[in-house]
Amino acid sequence: MFYPNSPQTSPQLTQIPYGQQYAMMQRQIQQPYHPFATTEPQARLYPYHYQGPIQQEQGGFITQQSTAASPQYVQMRVTPVDQSIMSGYPNQTANGSSSSSFNYNIHPQQQQQQQQQQQQLRHHAMPVGSVPLQDDRYRKQLIVNYLAPDVTSTDLHELFSRFGELDGARIIYDKQTNMSKGYGFVYFCHAEDAKEAVERMSGYEFHGKWLKVGYSTNPLNIVPSNSSPYVHAGSRGAAG
């Protein structure tokens, strides 16, 4: 039997160049792979992502010199942007860049009308829970959420009447099932009393439920100042 490094198959040491006398086997001759043993700084910083320098080929596509990437890492192929796409944008300079302001050559009167329309939209648009300043009635009506099913309009009136005089209180019921929808409205005579009720009743436990109280901004629920107070009856038909 002959071994790869046996004296019968191995040459004389004098015939082997210096430095390879003890590297006779194939696994010894093959050098191990060192990912950080390279002179390129990109490979030292990113050993798993770097795959060699990027070269520009004919046709405008950018390719990489090395083989496919590892399945664990996804390499994105980048193509140059066609400058003709950006030619339609206004205020574009000769080098292809555009300024931040756009001039669509709008007539001054049209621009003024658009600004007025935007101001009107901001004036009428009102986020949930906010209180408008032009109508004091919005500051007097509250919406009470997360009410228990057994709470009546009379219970709601008695709960909030300790903060001040009320114009009314009612629970909203479903017309088909005649069941409470879980929320109601309270109408105060003074805005200061309503503000105190919002601050003190939010998070209050009532009939096993934690109440959420806020201003009601729905104009359909506003009680006119010259109208008669609501009837605080315990029956659902009268309260709904």
Rank of each mutant, 00 (worst) to 15 (best):
E40S: 12
A23E: 12
F185H: 00
K212A: 06
Q55V: 06
S98A: 08
Q26F: 05
G203R: 02
Q111W: 09
Y230T: 03
P53A: 10
G234R: 09
S10L: 04
S10H: 10
Y33P: 12
Q58T: 09
S235W: 14
Q15F: 02
F163D: 02
Y173F: 05
S101G: 10
Q113N: 09
L159A: 03
Q58V: 06
V131S: 07
K175E: 02
R170T: 02
F102K: 12
Q116M: 05
I106R: 13
L121G: 06
I106K: 13
G129L: 03
S100C: 12
Q51T: 08
T217E: 02
G88I: 05
L159R: 01
V231K: 07
Q31C: 03
P80E: 04
D150A: 11
Q12L: 07
H190N: 12
T154K: 03
S100L: 09
H49G: 11
Q56W: 03
Q26C: 07
S84C: 10
A43S: 13
T38E: 04
Q109F: 08
I62Q: 12
P80N: 08
S100E: 07
D135Y: 13
F185L: 01
Q111H: 10
S99E: 06
F188Q: 02
Q115I: 10
M179S: 07
G203V: 03
M86T: 11
Y22W: 12
L133M: 11
Y46G: 13
W210R: 02
P224Y: 08
V151K: 01
V74M: 10
V151Q: 01
R236P: 07
H124Q: 09
A238R: 09
R200V: 10
Q111R: 12
R137V: 03
Y183F: 13
D136M: 12
A125I: 09
Q134L: 07
P108M: 11
N221F: 14
G60L: 03
D193S: 08
L45H: 15
P219L: 01
R44H: 11
Y18M: 06
Y204Q: 11
Y204C: 13
I54T: 11
Y50R: 15
V151A: 10
M126H: 06
R77D: 03
P71F: 02
G168W: 08
S161K: 05
G240Y: 12
I16R: 15
F206S: 01
T152M: 04
S161L: 12
Q176L: 13
A238T: 10
R162W: 15
L211G: 01
N218D: 00
N91H: 07
R27W: 03
Q21M: 03
Q114A: 09
Q51C: 05
Q51D: 06
A148P: 04
Y3G: 10
S98V: 08
Q8L: 09
A94R: 11
I16M: 11
Y46V: 07
R200A: 04
P149H: 14
Y204P: 01
A148R: 15
S87P: 06
V186T: 02
K140P: 01
K195R: 15
S70E: 06
E199T: 13
P32L: 03
Q134G: 06
G96N: 09
P32C: 05
V128F: 13
A233D: 10
V231E: 09
G52T: 10
D150Y: 15
P90Y: 10
S10Y: 05
M179G: 05
Q176F: 15
Q56R: 14
Y104M: 05
N5V: 04
E158V: 13
T38C: 10
F206Q: 01
H107A: 05
Y183P: 00
F185K: 02
D193I: 02
A191H: 05
K209I: 00
S153K: 15
Y48M: 10
Y50N: 15
Q26K: 15
A238Q: 05
A148T: 09
Q118L: 10
Q117W: 13
V223E: 03
